Structure formats: C-alpha cells, structure tokens
Amino acid sequence: MREIVEDYFDYNGVRAADVETIRYKGKKIKEIARFTYKETLVRVEFDSDYTDQTLQKIAQKECMLIDNLGSLEYRNYCIKRDRLKEIENDFIVLDNKVYNYHEDKYGEIPYIQYSLSLTLENGQHIFSDIPVNFFTAKIKKDKKASLERLRGNAKKYFGEGVKPDLKHLDETLTLEYMQNKIWVNKKLKGE
C-alpha cells in the first residue's frame, strides 16, 4: 500500500515535497521524499520514522549538496550513493569488504524458505536461521529477514575478531564499493 502526503520544508524559501510511505501487510517498508530544487529532481529513500524534522534535515542536506555540487554532479552522487546502499542491502559488508554468502531456497509458494550461511576463517559455519520442522510448522521465511539475521551474526563474530572465509570475499564488488565510497565521501566533504 502506498500513502503519499504533501509536506513542506524551509530552505531558501518554502519548498513542497511529496513524502511517500510504502507499507506491506501493514508494516512500513520505507519512505521516499520527492521534490524539485533548482530544476533538479530529488528522490531520497529513508528508513527512520517520518517526522517534519526528518524531512527538514533530509531536504536541507540534499539542497546543500545541489548548491555545492551542481545538478549534474549531484545526479552522479545519487547514482553512486544508491549503488552503495544496494550493495549494503544485498551482501554482507564488513570493514569495507563485500562478502557473498551461500543460499539455499526450498519449499513452494507461499512457503518458500531461505537458508543463508557463511563460512568463517576458523572453519565454523554461521546460519541465518534456526532449523524448522517442516512437518509441524509452516513458517514463511523472508530472504531479506534471513539476510539481516546472517549479517547480524557475521558482525557479531567480526566484532570478536573472526572474519568470513576469503572464499566469500567478492573482490570486484569490494573494489566498486570502495571506489564509490571514497568518491561519495569526497563530495560530502566538498572536495
């Protein structure tokens, strides 16, 4: 379900923005703010609960970026920023390194289950979920939720000094991730 509300923020005069809330089965998935500033279309996704203050902060930051970078460079910034988010959402990123994971998918719609795993450098395997008795429980597992659990487990072990096995390291994505991150950070610092 999509819900769109027109709201206002103040930056160099009043600007109108549409704030779209996307819900799935009653649960808020994400929010998107859209507005135009200096003839540049701005579209920003954010996860925090929407308040006027949140819109004010987001809009002000994006307008300042457009002022500093110009329209064309701002679009490049958005492309790179969105790619960073995409990598962070689809993979496991630890210490600026991008790791793949092993995925098993089984079951039939609507009861598809995902089991994600990662081997650590010490040979231990960590998993995204706990075993399910398929004969007594029909639990639909969402891949995103499974990946979040696996990512949380990997961060816990990483915090204890145990890294994922190098076989999971995606060198190409790690290079892309680092190049984009360095570029975005330079632009945020005004370089």
Rank of each mutant, 00 (worst) to 15 (best):
G26K: 08
K85F: 09
K97G: 00
I126G: 01
S115T: 11
Y177N: 00
E148Y: 06
L175E: 14
D49C: 03
R151S: 12
I29S: 09
E6N: 13
Y157V: 07
L173W: 03
I109A: 13
S48N: 11
Y24A: 09
E39V: 05
L188K: 13
F9G: 02
L173E: 02
K138R: 05
R149P: 00
Y8E: 13
G159D: 06
I126L: 08
N180C: 13
K80T: 02
V132K: 02
K167A: 10
M1A: 13
E31Y: 01
E62G: 02
T119K: 15
N133W: 01
L69A: 13
D170L: 02
T136W: 01
G190T: 10
M1C: 09
L150Y: 06
Y114Q: 04
P131D: 05
N180M: 14
S115W: 07
C63H: 04
Y8S: 13
P164I: 02
K57T: 13
D95H: 07
E88N: 12
Y99S: 04
M64G: 07
D142L: 11
R2S: 11
G70W: 09
Y101G: 06
D82V: 00
E31G: 04
L118Q: 04
G190N: 09
K181H: 07
E148W: 03
K186V: 04
I29P: 00
V5L: 11
Y11Q: 08
D18C: 03
Y101A: 09
G70T: 09
K138P: 00
D104L: 14
A33Y: 01
T136D: 02
V5Y: 10
G123H: 06
K163E: 07
V19T: 06
D7T: 14
Y106P: 03
L175G: 02
K140W: 06
D47R: 14
E6R: 15
R23A: 10
S117Y: 10
F135A: 08
D10I: 12
Y8P: 00
Y106D: 12
R23H: 11
K143Y: 10
K189L: 15
D47I: 10
D7L: 15
Q60M: 08
I79M: 08
E31K: 09
G107L: 04
S146E: 15
K105Q: 14
D18M: 09
R81V: 03
K25V: 07
N100Y: 08
P131K: 06
F91H: 14
K30E: 11
F91D: 00
A137P: 00
K80V: 01
P164G: 05
K155P: 01
G152M: 10
D49P: 02
K181M: 12
V132T: 10
K28I: 15
Y37M: 03
R2K: 15
R2H: 07
N12I: 07
T40I: 05
I4V: 15
I66S: 03
Y111I: 10
L84Y: 04
K57W: 03
R83V: 02
D90K: 15
I87N: 04
I112A: 00
Q56G: 04
Q53W: 06
K105R: 15
N96A: 06
C63N: 05
Y24I: 10
I79K: 12
T51C: 06
Y111Q: 07
R2M: 13
G159K: 05
N133S: 08
A59L: 05
G161C: 04
H102I: 11
G70H: 09
R43D: 04
Y24Q: 11
N96E: 13
V132F: 01
C78L: 08
A17V: 07
